[in-house]
């Protein structure tokens, strides 16, 4: 039994305690405060809203683990969405077939990956700060997108794509299924694969990792490329959900994804952090906003509460550290 617990702890990491505690608190508080909170509707809305923010958070997670950041995620997602939309348009718009969708999705992922690839190359070869590189990429992509769309919407999406956005398999919305699959892929990547292992090592000390015979440039390039590809998946889901793409869609998610990573116990300097706690943190954030919605508040209040939650968690961590320090000094 203890072996099993140990294994579980190893797989999930010690970071899980914070998000799980927050989860419990949110469930109890809203369970009491909002009588209709523990209902199908709440979980339906969480399941519905989680994927977009979640996929973008996964895209943010990998760069943060290497000690960097990808500020271009939302506009990369927009560009990928635009790519798919244009392919569909050129293949007949609302009458486009499934083949066009597949082709468009592949191209969309390629566009996302390309944006990541460029950032990865610049970061790996010039050692420029990732915040700056991704920030300028963000400004560039925003400009590019607005230039190409003239600031308007691109719509005319075939009906089956919209249906994908809203349909369910075994009662689980398709976007949520895609998100859960992505979470699992990221979890396996980080816990079981060489690239994931090296990602953590680079995050702690890139030079020592290079001295150990790891191709650190390749790891950095791959990390940003995968991050860009994951943005593209988010962009495709967003297109299916909104039936259109507009540059700037989902812009407000950018800093929320960073917040979700930190809330999930990811080390802001890199090297430590796991997918599952981040997943739980995302669920907590969505439950919070759904709960507040039920009580009549809007998304803006939820945003503020997200920030307060983050601060609270950080203060609790600080307190826990102080207690530990005092105890060891006494003993």
């Amino acid at each position: 039994m203890t072996v099993l617990i140990d294994r579980a702890r190893n797989a999930l990491g010690p970071e899980l305690a914070g998000p799980l505690a927050a989860f419990a608190v949110v469930m109890v508080v809203f369970g009491i405060a909002a009588p209709n909170f523990l209902s199908r509707a709440t979980f339906g809305s969480v399941a519905f809203q989680l994927p977009e923010l979640g996929l973008l958070t996964l895209a943010m997670l990998l760069p943060i683990l290497t000690g960097g950041l990808n500020l271009a995620i939302t506009f990369t997602a927009n560009m990928a969405g635009l790519t798919l939309a244009w392919v569909l348009q050129s293949q007949g718009g609302v009458d486009a077939g499934i083949g066009a969708f597949v082709l468009g999705s592949v191209l969309a992922v390629a566009v996302g990956a390309l944006s990541g690839l460029i950032m990865g190359l610049v970061i790996a070869y010039t050692k420029a700060h990732p915040i700056l590189v991704s920030l300028s990429m963000m400004i560039f992509l925003r400009g590019l997108g607005e230039f190409l769309t003239r600031g308007g919407d691109v719509s005319g999406i075939p009906g089956f794509l919209a249906r994908i956005g809203y349909s369910s398999i075994f009662g689980i919305p398709v976007p949520l299924l895609i998100f859960i699959a992505s979470v699992l892929i990221w979890h396996i990547l980080l816990t079981r694969m060489k690239l994931g292992f090296n990602t953590y090592m680079i995050g702690s000390n890139i030079e020592a990792t290079r001295y150990s015979g790891i191709n650190t440039r390749k790891v950095q390039v791959l990390v940003y490329t995968l991050s860009g590809a994951m943005c593209a998946v988010a962009g495709i889901i967003m297109l299916a959900r909104f039936n259109s793409v507009r540059v700037g869609h989902g812009e407000s998610y950018l800093l929320i994804t960073v917040l979700a990573c930190f809330l999930g116990g990811v080390n802001p300097f890199g090297g430590f952090g796991r997918v599952i706690p981040v997943f739980v943190a995302l669920v907590v954030l969505q439950l919070l906003s759904s709960g507040l919605n039920l009580m009549g508040a809007n998304q803006h209040l939820a945003t503020a509460v997200w920030g307060i939650l983050m601060i609270t968690v950080m203060i609790l961590r600080w307190l826990a550290g102080r207690l530990k320090f005092l105890n060891t000094n006494r003993g």
């Binding site: 929320i256 802001p268 803006h300 920030g307 307060i308 983050m310 950080m314 600080w318």
Partner: peptide, 19 residues
């Protein structure tokens, strides 16, 4: 509370703007 500045200010960003 020894919170790293980027974490603290992303939080207050959300708090300020949300409120």
């Amino acid at each position: 509370f020894r919170i790293i500045s980027i974490v603290a200010t992303i939080s207050t960003f959300n708090i300020f703007f949300g409120l």
